[in-house]
């Protein structure tokens, strides 16, 4: 494990211990500077990433506020069949305000279906979902209008909530900037690259300030930088007290999530 790996592991440990975004960034940067100037094996200089993160938490405490709050999404006993095939069997998930939940599992195990049931777009054969507050949903694809500009998407979403045009456009552009995207250009959605289009898709779902945010593989077409921006954004939203559900087949971000629902048929059900 070289210094970069150690720093990455350390950053992940801080995230998991809910050290706030800025505080974590500063501590990691300071450790990086120290290693650069002094050299040496990070395991000797700082100890294990876990131990050092624990020491940091003891010194500065965790970020205020982001402790999990009341339950925002409660899905229980969700069962869904398509014809003879059972896609979901008795799946349950509870997500609280200030938590990120990951729905994982092999292809075709019903991850998207589960999310669409939570969003109320598909009816299950059994089970119920309770959502507290506003619901936001980001579909895997097709959630944008080919022949509209990004600004027009923001206006459309804003009008749904009675937000006037100007403020809706500004809010949309601000939300897009959080993902490292300047949405002010007059480019039709159909001419946006796959990754940028996905950012538009995402921005639309966060624009309505949802209390529960459901994201279906939201990083498709993203490069590494956008991917990092996305997770920073999700962490920020979580720390603001939103409940977030991410459908993903990438497991390397699981250290940043609070709840995992594995829908792989062999061991169905939730664990946290």
């Amino acid at each position: 494990m070289n210094a970069d790996d150690w720093l990455r592991a350390f950053a992940a440990e801080l995230y998991q211990r809910r050290v706030g975004g800025d505080a974590a960034r500063h501590v990691v940067a300071e450790a990086a500077t120290h290693l650069r100037e002094g050299g040496g094996d990070p395991w000797l200089v700082f100890g294990s990433p876990q131990a050092y993160a624990a020491a940091i938490v003891e010194s500065i405490g965790t970020a205020p506020g982001p402790r999990p709050g009341p339950v925002r999404l409660h899905a229980r006993g969700i069962t869904k069949r398509y014809g003879r095939q059972v896609v979901l069997r008795d799946a349950s998930l509870t997500v609280r305000a200030g938590q990120i939940a990951a729905v994982v599992g092999a292809n075709g195990c019903g991850k998207s279906t589960f999310l669409r049931i939570c969003a109320g777009l598909v009816s299950p054969d059994a089970g119920e979902v309770t959502v507290s507050g506003r619901l936001g949903y980001c579909p895997q694809q097709g959630g944008t209008a080919d022949f509209l500009l990004p600004d027009e998407h923001f206006v459309l979403v804003g009008a749904g909530q009675g937000v006037p045009r100007g403020p809706a456009r500004q809010a949309g552009r601000a939300a897009a900037r959080q993902l490292g995207w300047d949405a002010g250009n007059a480019v039709l959605a159909r001419h946006l690259s796959g990754g940028t289009r996905q950012k538009l898709n995402l921005t639309m779902s966060t624009l309505a300030q949802p209390d529960v945010l459901l994201l279906d593989e939201p990083y498709q077409g993203f490069d590494q930088g956008s991917y990092v921006d996305l997770w920073d954004q999700l962490t920020r939203l979580r720390d603001e007290g939103r409940a977030i559900v991410v459908v993903t087949h990438l497991l390397n971000q699981l250290d940043r999530v609070d709840v995992v629902l594995d829908l792989t048929p062999a061991h169905q059900g939730g664990r946290s």
């Binding site: 500063h26 501590v27 940067a29 300071e30 450790a31 120290h34 290693l35 002094g38 000797l44 200089v45 700082f46 100890g47 131990a51 050092y52 020491a55 940091i56 003891e58 010194s59 500065i60 405490g61």
Partner: peptide, 23 residues
């Protein structure tokens, strides 16, 4: 003095307002 010992102390001093810090 290893970094793992020093920085937690600095952070505690900063949190209790005995030192300030800036980048």
């Amino acid at each position: 003095i290893q970094g793992g010992t020093l920085y937690p102390v600095l952070l505690r001093l900063q949190r209790t307002g005995l030192v300030t810090a800036r980048w």
